[in-house]
Simulated assay, not measured.
Amino acid sequence: MGTGRPGRAASPAPRLNINALTPVETEKAVEDAGVAKTRLTGRRAFVSAMFAGAFIGFGALFFLIVTADPAMTWGPKRFVGGLAFCMGLVLVLCCGAELFTGNSLMVSDLAAHKVTLRQMLRNWIIVWFGNLAGALLLVSLVALAGTMGLADGAVGDLAVATAAAKVTPGWGTLFVRGILCNVLVCLAVRIGFAARSVADKVLGILLPIAGFVAMGFEHCVANMFFLPMGLAAKLMGFGAGAAGAGALDVGAIAYNLSAATLGNVLGGSLFVALDYWYLNAKPARKPSDPVLD
């Protein structure tokens, strides 16, 4: 005769939901993340931002390596380069890091009165400078590694040409390109929040990020790598024949970053964060409120 205890009824296996979060659920996830960002100490936020600056820099370097091939025609080169650049945001979203452009979404927390203006601006300032520090550190290491000399110097020449092309347009043009860029970046970040797996995150962000790169829009954190790397390559003797290379200096870098940064803030906060907060989190109209045609 068996002496074992009567078996317990088997508990049902948990149901695995593979569907992406709904827009309302995504908005809550975005806002919860924004609140958590304000609770980071200054040091933790800065170090995390350094990682993001370096991650985006790796994506930018991957772009330079891939698009240095002279055999590729313009369209395919931009698309393939954009896909390569996606590595940066994949690392940010999957490994965890503070990215200034993505943090534009914190404006939805401000609208919902979950964070104060001071808390949000404090995060933005720390993260912006942390992103810059991480990007500059990577520029130094890449220069020391001799990477600009790959493909018989084609990578270094392209670094100069790419940077020069970013400092020669008018400030207003760069500003609008910054707006358009961060609309796509923040939509990609929202896709990342909506995803339930690493694979979902990676696949979801590919087209928006590859798209903004292929379209030639301006991302301030990417430019924190592209522009100093171009200047460093120029000082190393690369890109002597690049159009506009003579204009590439520290002042030109500040010129681009001022326009790209302000455009990124406006694009991410006004055209993504506030709109999606209004659609998915703003308190609904009460039945007694009048309906305006």
Results as ranks from 00 to 15, higher is better:
A245N: 03
A247W: 10
V189H: 05
G211F: 15
G153F: 00
F193C: 12
G241L: 01
G246V: 03
L207W: 13
A163C: 04
G192T: 08
L174D: 02
K201I: 13
L184V: 06
L235D: 07
L187V: 15
L203I: 12
G204T: 12
I209R: 08
G241Q: 09
M215C: 14
P208F: 05
L203M: 11
G216P: 09
A242T: 00
L203D: 09
K234C: 02
G172C: 06
A242D: 01
I205L: 15
V155A: 00
E218D: 14
L206Q: 13
P228K: 03
G244Q: 03
A195D: 12
L203W: 14
I209V: 15
L184R: 05
G170L: 11
R190N: 12
D157S: 01
K234N: 02
I179W: 14
K166N: 05
N182C: 09
W171R: 04
V221P: 13
F225V: 00
D157P: 00
V213L: 14
F193P: 15
C181M: 13
A154S: 02
W171Y: 13
F225L: 04
D200G: 15
S197I: 07
N182G: 04
A242Q: 02
G216R: 06
L180D: 12
A194N: 10
L158Q: 12
A240Y: 02
L180T: 01
V167R: 06
V185C: 13
T168S: 15
L180C: 13
L231S: 03
L184G: 10
A240C: 00
F226A: 03
A232L: 03
L203Q: 09
T173E: 15
G244A: 05
G246D: 11
